[in-house]
Amino acid sequence: MSIDRKAAIAAYKERKTIAGIYVVRCAASGQAWVGQAPNLETIQNRIWFSLRQGAHPCRSLQAAWKAHGEAGLAFGECERLEDEESAYVRNALLKERLLHWRDELKAEVV
């Protein structure tokens, strides 16, 4: 294995993940769904994959996907959290901010 490859693998393992709150909106229906994620950079792929498979646990979001398709839904970030050393503190903050954004956007939690 080359030194460059080893360095790339090490950098990948040490990268910082950005936790936060996201929103999925349906322009046609006006509906919105909010959720929390330990990694905002990967959550959209996870959501879209489960929706494509017809397996997303949120029935109303899955129904919007079925009715309007991928082009009918938009993904956005509401808030990024500062890096927390403690997973407990990060998780508590995510829950608190999720409730704030749910109320602010009059959205359903996914």
Rank of each mutant, 00 (worst) to 15 (best):
C78A: 13
G69P: 06
V23I: 11
V23P: 02
E85Y: 04
D83V: 04
L105V: 02
L81E: 01
A19S: 14
A32M: 04
P57Y: 15
L105D: 04
V110K: 14
L61W: 07
A32I: 01
L61G: 03
K95G: 08
R15C: 04
C26Y: 09
V110S: 12
S2Y: 13
G20H: 08
S60T: 15
A55M: 07
K6W: 10
F49Q: 13
P57E: 13
L105C: 02
W101K: 08
A8P: 05
E108L: 10
E77V: 15
R25P: 00
A27R: 08
R46K: 11
F49W: 09
G35S: 14
R25G: 08
G30P: 01
E41C: 05
I43Y: 10
R52P: 00
Q31L: 08
G69L: 05
S2I: 07
A32T: 04
E85K: 07
E108Q: 09
I9W: 09
Y22F: 12
A28K: 09
C26V: 09
Y22S: 05
S2P: 00
K66F: 02
P38S: 15
N39I: 02
L105N: 04
E79N: 02
E104S: 07
P38F: 12
E108H: 02
W65H: 08
F49A: 11
Q31I: 01
V110R: 15
V109A: 06
I3G: 15
E108G: 03
W48G: 07
A107Y: 03
E84Y: 07
L99T: 06
M1N: 12
E108R: 02
K66Y: 04
A92T: 09
F49R: 14
S60Q: 11
L105Q: 05
V110G: 10
A64E: 12
R102Q: 13
R15W: 02
W65R: 02
N91G: 07
A87S: 03
L40Q: 09
S60M: 09
Q62T: 05
E104I: 01
A7W: 11
T42L: 11
R15T: 05
H100E: 12
P57H: 12
V110Q: 14
V110F: 10
R90N: 01
V109P: 00
A67Q: 14
R46M: 04
L81N: 02
P38V: 14
F49E: 11
A74R: 08
E79W: 06
R80T: 04
E85Q: 05
L99M: 07
I47L: 13
D83A: 10
A64P: 01
S29D: 08
E70W: 06
E85F: 10
R5I: 12
E96F: 01
R46N: 10
R46L: 07
F75T: 12
I9S: 12
E85L: 06
E104D: 03
S60Y: 06
R90A: 02
R52T: 02
E79R: 06
A64Q: 04
F75A: 11
L93P: 00
E79C: 01
V24C: 10
Q44V: 09
H68C: 07
R90C: 01
S29E: 09
E41M: 08
A27L: 09
H56T: 04
M1S: 14
A87P: 00
H68Y: 15
K16D: 07
N91R: 01
A27W: 07
E79Y: 06
M1V: 11
A28L: 11
C26A: 08
I21K: 09
K95P: 00
G20Q: 11
Y12P: 01
R25S: 15
A71Q: 14
E14S: 12
I47Y: 09
V89K: 03
R52M: 03
